[in-house]
Design a protein around this nucleic acid. Structure first.
Lengths: 143, 143
DNA sequence: TTCGGTGCAAAAGATTTGCATATGT
DNA sequence: ACATATGCAAATCTTTTGCACCGAA
């Protein structure tokens, strides 16, 4: 069975908070991890229903919120205003294709450093950031 | 009367598209320009009603969409998911205070250049970007 | 047995749309 | 006159909440 690290993280969080370990939470965690990031609530709901059609929308929302609190998932809003979830990991930003919707992650230490400098200039204590580049991917530019 | 440039731009756009020049559109344009950016639809609606209480929510939304199409306004979504409008201008990004909501604009040619480089690396043709730094402003850090 | 969890339906908040009426051109 | 604009109310869309019932510990 895959996803051991995240399963363990979830179990630890549930135990710490005296919350319960349910099969719905397992199914949703699996769906989220299988989706490999950037899945919307709707997409997760569909994936989850393939495994267990009795799980409701509400539970998907509530569980994703739980995973965010547990530090396993991160919620993001791109320009369409719909929430997407990705596996929590630091220091990366996104390129989004305006035509096909493809999302590519990138990292730039230079940009990271510059952000810190800018925050310092304005006397802000930085907590997080959002950096998205929108354009057309090589495939969509040609067509 | 202020806002000549934007008024002219709106008139030109209306004429070009055979749309009509109404007093509602004037009032909303004024409210938007007076707000100096980052106003929500709700805030614009309130401002507009001070001038003319008969103007409806719908017209504010429709007119802001029109201003966006005309290239006068730009719609942005920060992390709260509510649309905010700012006067169209290039090359700037935002620092947002997580406590008091203060929004500061900044520019960084270095970051701009790096973005172009990254897009090129991934063979993306860049159209626009969003770059927001979230943290605590100097005032809120102290309290 | 006891809380927390689930699922449904209903509520909520932001934005959009249908439609009859009003108004620029 | 005619086409577009407006304002209201109702509809949408995404997400949240209330509540009775279910199930993990």
């Amino acid at each position: 069975m895959a996803h051991e690290a995240e399963r363990a993280a979830l179990s630890a969080y549930l135990e710490e908070k005296s919350l319960k370990h349910t099969k719905q939470r397992d199914v949703i965690l699996d769906a989220f991890l299988d989706a490999r990031g950037h899945a919307t609530s709707e997409e997760l709901y569909q994936l989850v229903r393939e495994v267990n059609p009795n799980i409701g929308y509400t539970t998907v929302y509530r569980t994703m919120k739980l995973l965010v609190d547990a530090g396993i998932a991160q919620e993001r809003h791109f320009d369409d205003g719909i929430a997407r979830y990705e596996i929590e990991h630091q220091h990366h930003d996104h390129l989004v294709c305006l035509k096909c919707g493809k999302i590519v992650e990138f990292e730039s230490p230079l940009i990271e450093a510059t952000q810190e400098q800018i925050a310092a200039d304005y006397k802000f204590v930085l907590k997080r950031h959002r950096h998205e580049l929108y354009g057309y991917c090589s495939h969509c530019v040609e067509s």
